[in-house]
Design a protein around this nucleic acid. Sequence first.
DNA 1: CTGAATCCCACCTGATACTG
DNA 2: CAGTATCAGGTGGGATTCAG
Lengths: 137, 137
Amino acid sequence: MVTDLDDGTFDFCETLTDAQDALAREMLERASAKWPLRVMHILAKAKGPLRFSRVLERVEGISQKVLTQTLRTLESDGLVTRTLYPQVPPRVEYELTPLGGELLVEVVALWQWIANRLPDFEAARAQSPRATDAAKR
Amino acid sequence: MVTDLDDGTFDFCETLTDAQDALAREMLERASAKWPLRVMHILAKAKGPLRFSRVLERVEGISQKVLTQTLRTLESDGLVTRTLYPQVPPRVEYELTPLGGELLVEVVALWQWIANRLPDFEAARAQSPRATDAAKR
DNA sequence: CTGAATCCCACCTGATACTG
DNA sequence: CAGTATCAGGTGGGATTCAG
């Protein structure tokens, strides 16, 4: 028995076109993904533009290639701005857009909710590394 | 410039151990992923137990293998219960747990937020299929 | 400094076939 | 009915090298 959910709580998506629904799902998945989330997080904490190298340093474990890909995607989704200063050596700065900042706030809210329930998830995992056959008798 | 964020808004994660942080990120990513989200959505709308075949029918485009995997993962995360009735032919029912229902509500909230901003995302994509070189002069 | 280009591999996905 | 087994294909991501 699910918690007391209103009818229609989960029907909103049916008011979207297939294309819109797909786009919304895609954005949801991207914003929750490992690297984009970490990168947005770093940019948010910086509270201002950050050079490529700085981001690379601060996002632990990311490779330069993946960081480039991630930033490009974030840029084309309007979550991050990329500003190129045509100098030599080149300088490029990335900054979270207002839209990106707002999205991050929302994602972090969900993250926090999950973090608060961590004991539940840890418990579930602990007791079911092999939780087959629930109804044995 | 990011929207007006408090200092510390994004620092909560630093109060977690690495393992906890990793688990929270993992759950976030899973709950937002394509198939788990769709499956939870179907189970929520069903408002009760659903047999494997029913889920398979209702989650459009999923293969039975992936559905099995998805359900197993959801089960081991405590989001779904699996009840086997040892009959012949076998009958297995899946149902969203309270925890799963709550998590789904949170994810859907984020999803809705994104859906409301779809025009922004569509606009961003439209103007930057090749949005290189922002600062040209 | 900021990438682009290559190579490469592990993993995941999905289709198909088989089974208790 | 509800899976498991197997295999092929695509994808993500790391390491390395080259370039403007």
